[in-house]
Write a protein that binds this DNA or RNA. Structure first.
Length: 488
RNA sequence: GGAGAGGUGGCCGAGUGGCCGAAGGCGACGGUUUGCUAAACCGUUGUAGGGGCUAAAACCUCUACCGAGGGUUCAAAUCCCUCCCUCUCCGCCA
């Protein structure tokens, strides 16, 4: 082959099963479902449990921490917090506290009064005066309660729009130009002549078609056929097998539609609704990533500490509206409204999450290494990170046709951000009497974006005759096929 | 889609208007006993918010929470309405 000998760097893949030890503890944890208080309403006109379900007292930071340390949080957020109306927030927090205190005092009064009435009645004494008085108190409470509810709705609305605080190790910066490269792996392939783009190669090989996808659906969709479809499926199976077999993840096949509460739990809502596809008749959304359903596996649950870390891997298609990306990556498979992805999701204790991010990133890298695709890892700067992340590594694969590294995986530690919004907690094990539930830390990463992996294979393994060599680890998944030729 | 039965704490489960944050059991934690383990016995054990105390906790106190939301009432786990979810039967469907 004429693509160099760098492939020998790649370690061979040996399937082993060491994932079962987790399953027993997992079912224990799954049984430990708890129902926590839910109230805040984002769609206040519909009393439908599918819609809001946002834990109201715990939207972003706990409100006490937010109130006590508003300026500190503002400083830590830096430019990420520029859209937050800090003054309104402070005012709302104070107003809520004042009103809460008043309402609760009135309620205590009402409770005492009602108890007295009960005693009078039992003693067969007249209680009309007390009942009249308590009716007045009750009416006052109802009025104030309504005000308080309005305050809390506004407060929830604000806090749900505050992004996560960057991890201390995250470089400060404005945009992708300030990201920091961490490491590189692999060697660039030697390609005779000018490297062809994957769409050029794929269409010539008869395995990739965009016109027909546009016909049946629209722009930013693709059809894979023949060896192309087979290669996509092979990659999905290879990735899942490595993650379940070698890396110890538990496979999940979740729903591809989720409700509003799940989207809010992981942070896609309320801020990024325009990026999502939504059904017309139901308040369901097509998932933009498996992170959403898989993280929400444990929404509003109490996990056992011994069951942590819980590691899941899931293949799902992903659906994104790509609003605002007009003109970007208009050709090829790089940016589609629908693409396949194998995702890694992890739930850990707070003390383990830093280490888990490194581990998880390594698991994603292992796929690229197995496939012999050159890549680099970059740490996103504070300005380039997603809304919910505390720290993110992007893995970028080498694309010879463009001579650039393109994102193929994004691995993030969300710390307690998603756990707080989604109510995912664990009870610390053992210890002394201290066993207060704590929020877990959640992490996830692509392991990998399948379509982009197919792109990288086509481009990095292209031969001067227009055929494409199939990486060795996929041969078995391809029914023995070792090379993609025209129309196979 | 039609008919019915349900949803209570970490788990199971009692509770049909006040003395119920909720019996009883399981689990967990602490202790007694024990050569060790087990058993037995005694005790503790929900979450969140406000206030007080504090460097912070512990702690004290008030309030809320029995699927969700609303209503009736002086007072709701309990009565009424709407919704969600689960289970059973029928229909339809892969």
């Amino acid at each position: 082959m004429d693509s160099g000998d760098w492939r020998s760097v790649a370690p061979g893949y040996a399937a082993r099963s060491n994932g079962q030890s987790q399953s027993a503890s997992k079912s224990r944890a799954a049984a430990a479902v708890t129902h926590i208080e839910i109230c805040a309403s984002l769609t206040p006109h519909k009393a439908d449990a599918r819609f809001p379900q946002v834990p109201c007292e715990s939207c972003m930071h706990d409100l006490r921490q937010l109130r006590d340390n508003l300026d500190g949080i503002r400083t830590q957020l830096g430019p990420r917090g520029r859209d937050v109306p800090w003054d309104d927030l402070r005012k709302l927090l104070d107003e809520r506290r004042n009103l809460t205190t008043q309402v609760e005092q009135l309620r205590a009064q009402l409770k005492r009064g009602s108890d007295e009435i009960a005693q009078l009645k039992r003693a067969k004494q007249p209680a009309d005066d007390a009942m009249t008085a308590m009716k007045a108190v009750g009416d006052r409470i109802r009025v104030m309660d309504e005000d308080l509810r309005g305050l809390e709705d506004r407060l929830t609305g604000l806090t749900l729009h505050i992004p996560n605080i960057p991890h201390p190790s995250v470089p400060k910066g404005q945009d992708s130009g300030d990201n920091v490269e961490v490491r590189r792996w692999g060697t660039y392939p030697t390609i005779g002549g000018t490297p062809r783009s994957h769409w050029d190669l794929g269409e010539a090989l008869g395995i990739l078609n965009f016109d027909r996808a546009a016909k049946m659906t629209g722009a930013r969709f693709a059809v894979l056929t023949g060896a192309g479809a087979r290669l996509e499926r092979a990659l999905i199976n290879y990735m899942l097998d490595v993650h379940t077999g070698r890396h110890g993840y538990r496979e999940v096949l979740p729903p591809f539609l989720v409700n509003r509460a799940s989207m809010t739990g992981t942070g896609q809502l309320p801020k990024f609704e325009e990026d999502l596809f939504r059904l017309r008749e139901e308040d369901y959304f097509l998932i933009p990533t498996a992170e959403v359903p898989v993280t929400n596996l444990h929404r509003e649950e109490m996990l056992d500490e011994p069951s942590l870390p819980l590691r899941y891997t899931a293949y799902t298609p992903c659906f994104r509206r790509e609003a605002g990306s007009y003109g970007k990556d208009t050709r090829g498979l790089i940016r589609l409204h629908q693409f396949n992805k194998v995702e890694l999701v992890s739930f850990t204790t707070p003390s383990q999450s830093d280490e888990e991010l490194e581990r998880l990133t390594g698991h994603a890298e292992a796929i690229l290494q197995g496939l012999g695709l050159p890549y680099r890892v970059v740490t996103l700067c504070s300005g380039d990170m997603g809304f919910s992340a505390a720290k993110t590594y992007d893995i970028e694969v080498w694309l010879p046709s463009q001579s650039v590294y393109r994102e193929i995986s994004s691995c993030s530690n969300f710390q307690a951000f998603q756990a707080r919004r989604a109510g995912i907690r664990y009870r610390p094990a053992g210890g002394k009497k201290e066993a207060k539930p704590e929020l877990v830390h959640t992490l996830n990463g692509s392991g990998l974006a399948v379509g982009r992996t197919l792109v990288a294979i086509l481009e990095n393994y292209q031969q001067s005759d227009g055929t494409v060599i199939i990486p060795e680890v996929l041969h078995a998944y391809m029914g023995g096929m070792t090379r993609i030729q025209k129309d196979n």
